[in-house]
Design a protein around this nucleic acid. Structure first.
Lengths: 141, 141
DNA sequence: CCGGATCCGTTTCGATACTG
DNA sequence: CAGTATCGAAACGGATCCGG
């Protein structure tokens, strides 16, 4: 009696799938580090200001990797290090990130870099194009 | 010895402020219910498919209200009922929602309403304009 | 040193039962 | 109908340990 469409229960709406992928406090911050702040190593994420614990960071990286949002590989320059980067799927999170940042800047007005926010708000497509370009260039590491 | 700028610690980036506002599994689903599915009462949110628990729903509604994202008021037609609706600040979450839905539909391809997704993806501004219009009309209840 | 894994006390979440 | 109260489960976060 398998009748129940159980596993599907929460995925009727794509929003749900998205929230399952990174509907938590940390995952998107890691993505932001990769996408906008140029961070690439475990250590750099750790020091990225918000104070994530090593076990949590480790867990989120694994989770993001399992979902094909980030990928890791050894640093070609220094075999001891590991580098992370966004996959194409991860890069496609950029519009979400941008909208979240714009909303946050608008309503919570943190001490944020004004110029970048401005660029993001006024010329979204241009900003996104730049992000994609940088990503493509970095890809050919 | 209050010296520490403690409460500020996590809000250097607007993304952080946003994640603090609704970086959890449920808040955005409630917003979606209000914005896209026309739900307005506690009960309707409950039955909205994903199976949120009453205490969680209660908590999220309070939290969203405290942040000025939703507001409540008695149903003018039936004083026993309580109606929720988005504030202007809440309405401004629409672009985030749209991008999250688009991303989810693209990569996790849930059994989702194809036509609406298509409209959302291809004509984002038009779609957003409609959402805003509906909201404005409903506002003069 | 770097990238984690493990242990453990604390906080938060969430399913169910219950109330005004 | 619109929520609380309760209580077990899960997540968090700090410290510490470990392999390379």
């Amino acid at each position: 009696m398998p009748a129940k469409p159980a596993a599907q229960r929460r995925s009727d709406c794509p929003l749900n799938a998205t929230l399952e992928a990174f509907g938590d406090r940390w995952s998107l911050l890691v993505v932001r580090d990769l996408m906008l702040l140029g961070r690439r190593t475990f250590r750099e994420f750790l020091e990225s200001g918000e104070g994530i614990a090593t076990n949590i960071l480790s867990d989120r990286l694994q989770r993001l990797e399992a979902q094909g949002i980030v990928e890791k590989r050894p640093d070609p320059a220094d075999a001891r290090k590991v580098l992370y980067r966004l996959t194409a799927k991860g890069l496609d999170l950029a519009p979400i990130l941008v909208e979240m940042i714009v909303w946050g800047a608008r309503y919570h007005d943190t001490a944020a870099p004004p110029s970048q926010i401005r660029a993001m708000t006024r010329h979204r497509e241009r900003f996104l194009a730049e992000v994609r370009k940088r990503w493509a260039e970095a890809g050919r590491s």
